[in-house]
């Protein structure tokens, strides 16, 4: 990884979200889902809280600790998926995972990721892929009813 790639990953948006996220809080009231995502090898751990309104993800928040990439990825995921239906969210999650694993290449599809497209260069840092995917896999499991 060279200098340029490093700066593309640690960009302004990711840094801001990782260090000072407004999504890092507790939801008011009892959330409909509250799940922990964990990367045992690195110790990153996040707790996702979700409030549903019918089929719509009305609100999300997170707490926990981890590296800049996992924290920012969680925060930006929340911005991207808030207000989406379960079906829309699942599609965006699958596009995001595809982007990080270098399977999704279509620019048109990637545009649906909104700010989360900022993580596309994490695909060049294999050691950090699981950091970027932690929150997305956790939410995917919740929406698929696995947890």
């Amino acid at each position: 990884m060279d200098e340029n790639e490093l700066e593309q990953v640690y960009n302004e948006l990711i840094m801001e979200h990782s260090m000072n996220s407004y999504n890092k809080k507790k939801l008011a009231g009892v959330p409909d889902f509250c799940e922990i995502g964990h990367n045992p090898n690195c110790g990153d751990e996040i707790t996702l809280e979700i409030k549903m309104n019918g089929n719509v993800i009305e609100d999300l928040a997170f707490s926990g600790h981890g590296c800049a990439i996992s924290q920012a990825s969680t925060s930006i995921m929340i911005d991207t998926l808030k207000g989406k239906t379960v079906e829309e969210a699942k599609e965006i999650i699958s596009t995001f995972i595809g982007m990080i694993k270098r399977e999704t290449k279509s620019e048109e599809e990637l545009r649906k990721l909104e700010d989360a497209i900022a993580f596309r260069n994490v695909a060049n840092m294999p050691a950090r892929v699981k950091c970027a995917l932690l929150a997305w896999h956790t939410l995917e499991d919740i929406l698929n009813g696995k947890k």
């Binding site: 990884m1 490093l6 990953v9 640690y10 800049a68 840092m125 050691a127």
Partner: peptide, 14 residues
């Protein structure tokens, strides 16, 4: 202080 070691390791790697 305040920075996660994985981020530091990635930057050191560069």
């Amino acid at each position: 202080k305040g920075v996660h070691p994985h981020d530091v390791a990635s930057i050191l790697d560069s």
